[in-house]
Every structure is written in C-alpha cells, then in structure tokens.
Amino acid sequence: MQAIHNGQCGVCGHFGERHKSDVLVTILSTKKADEGFIDECGHPKHAPLHLKVTAISGCDGFVPAAQA
C-alpha cells in the first residue's frame, strides 16, 4: 500500500468517476492504495484519451474529491 496525498489521482474527483466502487471509497477514506490499482482518468481534458492512471499519479487538473 502506498500513501496518497493531495494532488494525486487517488484523491482527485476525476479518478474513476465513470464507475464508482468500494475500492475508490476506501482509497479516499484511508488515503492509501494498492500500487497495482489502476483506473481511468475522467478529467474532461483527458477523457477522450481514456488514460489509465494509478492512485499516486497526478496532473495539473487535480480537483479534490468529495469526502467519502
């Protein structure tokens, strides 16, 4: 498990926004994620690219996720 910090995909509102899951809720509440967990970036600028990112990835389009 890796610690997730503000600015990283795991706590971004766009991370996995197309399919909510218990895994995403767990990442938001514990601020920790398995190194191998990958999900799609739903940022409007990146959505057409169908980017797959890890929870520790990050970009300038970070938007804090709503609290779990």
Rank of each mutant, 00 (worst) to 15 (best):
Q67I: 14
G58S: 14
C9A: 11
G42F: 02
A3H: 07
L24P: 02
F37N: 04
G13D: 15
E17R: 12
G61A: 02
E17M: 14
K31Q: 10
V11E: 01
I27C: 09
P48Y: 04
V53S: 07
P64Y: 01
H14A: 02
H14N: 06
D34L: 12
C9E: 08
V11F: 06
F62W: 11
L28M: 02
K31A: 09
G7D: 08
S57Q: 11
C12Y: 00
G61C: 03
C41R: 06
H5A: 11
H50S: 13
H5K: 14
F15M: 13
R18H: 08
L49G: 06
A55D: 11
E17K: 14
D22A: 15
P44S: 04
V23M: 05
V23S: 05
V63L: 11
I38V: 15
I4P: 00
L28C: 01
L49V: 06
V23P: 01
V63S: 03
A68L: 00
H50K: 15
T54L: 05
G10P: 09
F15W: 06
S57N: 14
E40K: 09
G13H: 12
H14E: 06
T26N: 12
P64S: 04
L51D: 11
H19L: 12
I27L: 08
T54A: 13
G7N: 10
A66E: 14
K32C: 08
A65P: 00
H19K: 13
K32D: 03
L28N: 02
D34P: 08
D34E: 15
F37S: 05
C9V: 09
E35Q: 08
V23T: 14
H50Q: 14
I38P: 05
D60A: 11
A55L: 09
G61Y: 15
A3M: 05
V63E: 09
Q67P: 09
V11R: 02
Q2W: 01
D34M: 09
F37T: 12
G10Y: 05
H14C: 03
M1P: 13
D22F: 10
V53Y: 06
P48M: 05
A65R: 01
C41M: 12
F37E: 09
V11Y: 05
K31L: 12
G61F: 15
H46L: 12
C12G: 07
H50R: 15
F37R: 04
D34G: 06
A55N: 11
G16Y: 08
D34A: 14
V23G: 02
P48T: 09
S29N: 08
I27W: 05
H19C: 09
G58I: 12
K45Q: 10
A55H: 12
H43S: 07
H5E: 13
S21N: 03
H46V: 13
P48W: 03
V63K: 12
Q8E: 15
F15N: 10
P64M: 01
H14P: 00
C12I: 03
A66F: 00
S57K: 07
C12N: 04
G13R: 09
G16V: 07
M1K: 10
V25P: 00
H5N: 11
V23I: 14
K32R: 15
S57M: 11
I4K: 00
G7I: 08
P48L: 06
G36A: 14
G42Q: 02
F37Y: 15
A68C: 01
Q2E: 10
H43Y: 10
F62L: 04
